[in-house]
Amino acid sequence: MQNLAHHDIEKSQAQSIETVIEMRGVSTRFGEHVVHSDINLKINRAEIFAIIGGSGSGKSTLLREMILLQLPNSGSINILGINLTDISEKNALALRKRWGVMFQHGGLFGALTVKENVGLPLREHTTLSDAQIDAIAEQKLIMTGLKLEVGAQYPSELSGGMLKRASLARALALEPELLFLDEPTAGLDPISAAGVDELVVQLRDQFGLTIIMITHDLDLLWQVADRVAVLSDGRVQAVDSMLGLSSSNIDSVKAFFDGPRGRSAREQSALQAIKINDHLKDSSSKLK
């Protein structure tokens, strides 16, 4: 996976043909309320895949179904070659070690310090010594842009942006192949949000992570998403790059782009895409 760092985005996209997540005919109901009907999606390795849709369109439910927090009423979800329907406990644990989840509100344990939080997956699932675990936890904190002092603090003492970074550090503790991000920039100031953009792209490029995210953030979508699935009325209305979607004729997709915020994000992105590409080329040449 490490060699992906040497390629820029286009090349890594061309290489990744392996499907890591496949959903077929996924339907979900809460009582009589239909959340999803017949959702089909394929997500490829080392891709940054975003799921968007209005409130109540069931994108969070879809994410919860992917990370084994909830089961769909019908249909199948296949992740890394394992079918999630009737999954055995052993397989479920094996899968959980291969993915990391960053929750919208962090989901950090209030009773543990940040460093203990990040080290917890290692403490549970590996036989590493405490010193080794601390070293890895510190490395992950630095990787996600947190200062070492933060490790000794409790989650309640952190700001929203730091919480998300700490949550990301914990999600990365077991060196996962898949990373699920639930609203990675919601509630962040523009500067912190831009930091998350860069972090996400960096993770994919350096470690070949497949990243699946749910977001409302148009800027984030324009900057980092390779492909975007638009969820509306319980169905996937379209799956395409942002550029492709922006010229779509489907009403529910157009609604997403045609607001004033949609337009400004698009104009902004044209400018910033150039900057980010330059930045990425810089950083990957530095890595070489």
Partner: peptide
């Protein structure tokens, strides 16, 4: 209950605990 509201229970499950 507080842990459920702050997604800590979900996080626990996804960490395989």
């Amino acid at each position: 209950g507080t842990m459920a509201v702050t997604e800590e229970i979900d996080a626990m499950r996804t960490l395989g605990i």
